[in-house]
Computed example of a mutant assay.
Amino acid sequence: MPCVAHGIEGVRALPIGEVLGQSDLYEITQEAVDKFADATGDYQWIHVDAERAKDGPFGGTIAHGYLTLSLVPRLLPEILEITGFALVVNYGCERVRFPSPVPVGGKVRATAVLDEVSEVRGGLQLSITMTITVEGAAKPACVVTFLTRQLV
């Protein structure tokens, strides 16, 4: 069940610096990796060539780092639901790191921490750190501080 905030006052009442929650597990499939390769033109063998990747550094194919990053808009609504705004805009990222790979077949989940809420013209800007981990892995797969704008 996501944490729910309604409107400007609801967002301002969210706890700063605390974990808001975590998403469900989401499995990374070879089909998803292949579709991402098609969309981006990144056909590096560690992502799309299962036979060659068996002998590679990860023992199989892995997701693109940017595929892992692209899961943020999919996983965040499972953690945080914000209502009462006319428009939500992904404004950007301040920091992105990929500390460990996501193997195909791995299951990832995200946690979110609200770092800051600030006023912008027409609404609020939220700075949120999302940490995406692979089930059973020692280090996170992706840590990103991103900015989203909630506009009235």
Rank of each mutant, 00 (worst) to 15 (best):
V120W: 06
V96E: 01
V152K: 15
V104G: 02
L14S: 00
Q125R: 11
L69G: 02
D42L: 09
L25S: 03
L14H: 02
H64D: 09
R109S: 14
R95A: 13
A5N: 08
T29Q: 10
T40F: 01
T148H: 12
C142Q: 07
R74G: 07
G65V: 09
D115W: 08
L71W: 02
P101M: 10
R74N: 05
V88N: 05
V108P: 08
A5C: 12
D115R: 14
H64E: 11
T129G: 01
Y66M: 14
K107R: 15
G21N: 07
A53N: 03
A63M: 02
P15R: 07
A37Y: 06
T61F: 02
I62L: 00
G59L: 06
A110E: 05
G122I: 09
Q44M: 07
L75M: 13
P103S: 15
G17L: 03
F146C: 07
L114N: 05
A32K: 14
G41Y: 06
A63Y: 00
G84C: 10
E135H: 10
V4D: 01
I79M: 09
L14T: 02
K54F: 05
R74H: 10
V88L: 06
R52S: 12
G56M: 03
D38F: 01
I82P: 01
A137F: 15
L20E: 07
Y43E: 09
